[in-house]
C-alpha cells in the first residue's frame, strides 16, 4: 500500500518536473525557432509554433555582415584568460583568509565583501577614467583586469578552505616547504571541487558581461558576443532572425561548458559546507 502511494507521488513529482522543464526550455526553443524562420514569417500576426520553412539565411547574413569570428574569439579570449586570473587570485586570496591570521584580516575581508555590493553603474564612469588612464581602452585587458577580482569567489573559497586540516599544512612547513609550494602542491590538489565551481561561474560571468565591456570596447572588431547582440538588437530596424541566431551562437559554448562541468557543480558547492 505504502510503496504504491510513494510510487504514485514520485510519478506526480516527476511529471511536474518535466512540465516545468518544458516551460523552462520553451524560451530557448523560441530563440532557435525564430533564428531559422524566414524574415517574412517573423512578424506574422498569426504565429505558428513550428516554423513553416526552415532557413539558414539569418546565420549566413550574420556571418557576412558582422565580424562574427572576431566576436567569438574576443569572447573566448576574455572568458578564458579572465577565468585563469580570477580563479587563481581567488584561490590564493581565499586560502589566505581561511588559513592565516594576520593583523587587519577581518577589516580586509569585510572590505572585499563590501566590493561585492557596489553596483557597477555607480562606478562606471570613474572606473572608465582609470581604465582609460591605464591605456586599456579597446583592448581585451580593459575588460579582463577590472573584472578580475571577484568577491563572490573569494568568499566561496574561504568557506571551502576552512575545512582543510591545519595539521597537513603544519607538517609540510616542518618539512621546510615554502608557502607558495604548500599552496600549489598541497592546497590546490585538494580544491578540485571548488575550482570547478569557480571555473563555471567565472566563465559564465565573463562570457555574458555587458555593462562594462559596453563602455570599454568601442571598436567593432573588439566586440564580444553580448555587445554584438546589443548592437543588432538596438539597430534602427533590428533583424530579429539574426538577433536570435546570434543569441543562439552565444549560448552554445556555455552549454558545452555546463554539460561538461555540471557534475562537479553540485559537489563543489556542497563541499564548501555552506557556512
Amino acid at each position: 500500500m505504502k510503496a504504491r502511494s510513494t510510487a504514485q507521488a514520485t510519478t506526480a513529482i516527476w511529471l511536474g518536473l518535466v512540465i516545468g522543464a518544458l516551460l523552462m526550455l520553451f524560451p530557448i526553443y523560441w530563440i532557435a525557432a525564430t533564428a531559422v524562420r524566414p524574415r517574412t514569417e517573423i512578424f506574422d500576426a498569426v504565429i505558428s509554433l513550428v516554423p513553416a520553412h526552415v532557413t539558414w539565411e539569418n546565420f549566413i547574413y550574420l556571418w557576412r555582415r558582422q565580424p562574427l569570428l572576431a566576436w567569438m574569439t574576443n569572447s573566448l579570449f576574455i572568458a578564458i584568460v579572465g577565468v585563469f586570473i580570477t580563479v587563481f587570485a581567488n584561490l590564493l586570496c581565499g586560502y589566505t583568509f581561511a588559513k592565516f591570521k594576520f593583523p587587519g584580516r577581518n577589516i580586509l575581508f569585510f572590505a572585499i565583501l563590501g566590493a561585492l555590493m557596489i553596483p557597477i553603474q555607480v562606478i562606471l564612469v570613474p572606473e572608465f577614467l582609470i581604465t582609460a588612464w591605464l591605456g586599456l581602452l579597446n583592448t581585451p585587458w580593459g575588460v579582463i583586469l577590472p573584472r578580475a577580482a571577484e568577491a563572490f569567489g573569494i568568499f566561496m573559497v574561504r568557506q571551502f578552505m576552512v575545512s582543510i586540516p591545519d595539521e597537513l599544512l603544519e607538517a609540510a612547513r616542518l618539512d621546510g616547504a615554502g608557502e607558495f609550494h604548500i599552496f600549489t602542491r598541497i592546497v590546490l590538489p585538494l580544491s578540485r571541487p571548488i575550482i570547478a565551481v569557480l571555473v563555471i561561474f567565472t566563465f559564465m560571468w565573463r562570457w555574458n558581461d555587458f555593462a562594462w565591456p559596453l563602455v570599454v570596447l568601442t571598436d567593432h572588431e573588439q566586440y564580444t558576443l553580448p555587445l554584438g547582440l546589443n548592437l543588432l538588437r538596438g539597430e534602427v530596424n533590428p533583424e530579429w532572425g539574426q538577433v536570435m541566431a546570434l543569441a543562439l551562437i552565444g549560448l552554445a559554448p556555455m552549454l558545452i561548458i555546463f554539460l561538461l562541468f555540471q557534475r562537479y557543480l553540485v559537489q563543489g558547492i556542497a563541499s564548501t559546507g555552506l557556512k
Binding site: G20, A21, N208, F210, A247, L251, M254, L255, I257, F258
Partner: peptide, 14 residues
C-alpha cells in the same frame, strides 16, 4: 537538473 539550470548561462541581454 541541467534544464532548470540552463537559463543561468544565457546572458542578461539575450
Amino acid at each position: 537538473r541541467s534544464v532548470y539550470f540552463l537559463p543561468l548561462v544565457v546572458s542578461a541581454v539575450a
